[in-house]
Every structure is written in structure tokens, then in C-alpha cells.
Computed example of a mutant assay.
Amino acid sequence: MADKKQEQFYSPPPKMGKWEGFKKFLWNSETSQCLGRTGASWAKILFFYIIFYAVLTGFFAAMLAVFYQTLEVDKPKWTLDNGMIGSNPGLGFRPMPPEANVESTLIWYESSKPDNYKYWVEETARFLKSYDDLPKKNHVNCSFENLPPEGKVCGIETHSFAPCTEEQNFGYHVARPCIFLKLNKIYNWVPEIYNDSKGLPAEMPTDLKQHIKEKQSLRPNETGVVWVSCEGENPADIENIKSRDYYPRMGFPHFYFPFKNIEGYVPPIVAVQFTVETGVLINIECKAWARNIHHDRSERRGSVHFELMVD
């Protein structure tokens, strides 16, 4: 009798086909199991995961709440030398080459073919339109005598860049292209201006030194500027640049600084119109000049490089 019971205990399960076995896995009427678990077992595991993920969500929510308590909405926590950006602004230029040549800094076109320079004109116009489309809230008209009050920012009139205007194709059709420069924004950075012609650095270009001296003697109130210069990088490049004209002035006025993330703020821009030797590739380096702007060509600190070729 005992042997018979033992044989029944160790007897293998009945053989079933794949479909029958799958249906029994979905619902076993003999043991009241669904997917291999009873209702009580499913209730326990569901309750466990609800508690587990609720605690996990609450933990991360608490950590984020504590983290955001250390931040300010309108300014970065770490600024200037304490931040990753640092306190040495760089320069940017527009128009940029097409996205297909994202790593290129070459501006190359044929001045006799409108379809050829059309992209550069449209890209420059798009850049200036982005300034016009910005909200004018908090904008005031600024000058060297009329500084912006607290909580206000200086606006920019894009017509002040004449002859670098869309109506004149930004000079591309006459082989005198206009390149726009802008200084990168750094929160709370204040430039230390070169407004004394006696303390100018030796490496500053001669024509810029002369310009500062003239401003110092004729209009000393207009020397509060982060100066800008554009030069050929090599002796051959210098020879192939016939002239450069800066609009509206040879730098960025001090009343645009510091950047404090006030709504409506626009970074100042300078248009540089180049007259160059045609059919020659010219390497150009533009620099921003202030006592607290340091130049490093390898890291492009305080400067920007691009190539210009007009056929």
C-alpha cells in the first residue's frame, strides 16, 4: 500500500500539448492559479512593488527639492572664475557656413553670381532678424551719457550698421562682405576698459591704438568700449586685406555690461566690412580688447578665427 502511494507521489505530470500547456499556464482551474500565481500571491507582489516604487519616487523627489533649493531661477549658482565658463569671454561671428559644413569656418562665394552669395545674405539677415524679434520689454535707448537704469537693458537698432544692411546685400555683391561679431555672454562679467592711450598693450594693432588715441583726444567720453580688431593671421593674409570698416563703432560699448539675465537683454554686435584681394584664401583673426580679456589662439580665448575667400 505504501509503495503504491509512493508511486502516485512521484508520478510525472500528465503530458499536454503546447496549446493546452499554455492555456493551463494562463489559468489553472485545479489550483486557481493565473500565470503560475494565486490571487493572494499576485496581491502580495503587487502591494510590494507599489510600496517600493512609491518610496523610490518620494526619495528622488525629496532629493530634487533639496537640490533646487540651492539654485536661483534668474542666475547661475557659480559665476565667473567659480563657474565652468570662467571670466574670459570669446568672440563669435556671423554668418556661419551651412550646417552640412558644421566644422568649417570658411566664407567663400562668387560676388558676380547672386545665387552664389544668396545664402550668406539670407543667413546674415536671419541673424539680425533674431534681434528684431526679441521682446522689447525693459529696453531703453542708451548712450555713453545715458546709461540704463537698474532693471533695464540697452536695445540695438539694426539700421545703425549701414552700409551693412540687407538692402545692400551686406556688401557681398561688391566683394566687400560684412561679418558680424558678438561677444559671448558671461553672467555678471564687467570689462576693464582700455580708456587710457598710455596703458595699451604692445601686441594691440597699431591702427586700433591710433583710434583709441584719437577718441581720447576728441571724444574722451566715448572711450568706454571693449575694443575690437580684425587682422590677417599671417603676413600674406595681412597684405591681402585692403581695408576694414567697423560699424557702428570699433567695439562694444560698456553700457551693455554686465549681463544679468534681465528679460529682453541683447548682446552687442559689431559689423566689420572687409575689402579683400579676390581669388585668395585669407585667414582672419578678430580679437576683443579689455584688461581682463586674455588671448590664447589655440583655445580661441578672447578671439575668433574664420577664413574669407571672394571670387
Rank of each mutant, 00 (worst) to 15 (best):
residue 193 I to Q: 05
residue 277 E to T: 15
residue 265 Y to R: 02
residue 291 R to A: 07
residue 232 G to C: 00
residue 246 Y to H: 09
residue 286 C to D: 12
residue 211 H to F: 12
residue 257 F to H: 03
residue 213 K to H: 08
residue 268 P to H: 10
residue 290 A to W: 08
residue 257 F to C: 02
residue 196 D to G: 01
residue 277 E to K: 14
residue 269 I to E: 00
residue 197 S to G: 02
residue 257 F to D: 02
residue 241 I to D: 01
residue 283 N to T: 11
residue 202 A to M: 12
residue 197 S to M: 02
residue 276 V to Q: 04
residue 237 D to I: 04
residue 201 P to F: 06
residue 221 N to T: 12
residue 273 Q to V: 12
residue 282 I to N: 01
residue 257 F to S: 03
residue 245 D to W: 10
residue 205 P to W: 15
residue 234 N to C: 01
residue 212 I to E: 06
residue 290 A to Q: 08
residue 235 P to W: 01
residue 277 E to M: 12
residue 248 P to T: 10
residue 255 F to W: 11
residue 200 L to Y: 06
residue 222 E to G: 04
residue 209 K to F: 11
residue 246 Y to R: 09
residue 271 A to E: 05
residue 242 K to T: 02
residue 195 N to G: 10
residue 248 P to R: 11
residue 242 K to R: 06
residue 288 A to G: 11
residue 216 Q to W: 09
residue 264 G to H: 10
residue 235 P to Q: 01
residue 267 P to N: 11
residue 219 R to T: 13
residue 244 R to H: 03
residue 242 K to A: 05
residue 278 T to Y: 04
residue 223 T to G: 09
residue 224 G to K: 13
residue 260 K to W: 03
residue 251 G to F: 07
residue 251 G to C: 12
residue 247 Y to V: 06
residue 266 V to D: 03
residue 245 D to H: 09
residue 286 C to Y: 08
residue 194 Y to T: 03
residue 236 A to E: 13
residue 241 I to C: 03
residue 255 F to Q: 02
residue 195 N to S: 14
residue 219 R to W: 13
residue 226 V to C: 09
residue 227 W to P: 06
residue 230 C to I: 05
residue 259 F to T: 07
residue 209 K to G: 08
residue 218 L to F: 11
residue 259 F to G: 01
residue 200 L to I: 04
residue 222 E to Q: 15
residue 215 K to A: 07
residue 228 V to K: 07
residue 283 N to A: 09
residue 230 C to S: 12
residue 270 V to F: 10
residue 210 Q to Y: 11
residue 220 P to C: 07
residue 284 I to L: 05
residue 223 T to A: 07
residue 261 N to H: 10
residue 291 R to E: 12
residue 211 H to W: 10
residue 202 A to Y: 14
residue 223 T to V: 13
residue 199 G to E: 14
residue 216 Q to I: 03
residue 261 N to I: 05
residue 226 V to N: 07
residue 219 R to L: 13
residue 229 S to Y: 05
residue 248 P to K: 11
residue 268 P to V: 06
residue 233 E to C: 01
residue 279 G to T: 13
residue 237 D to H: 01
residue 197 S to Q: 05
residue 219 R to F: 13
residue 206 T to A: 09
residue 214 E to C: 01
residue 247 Y to R: 14
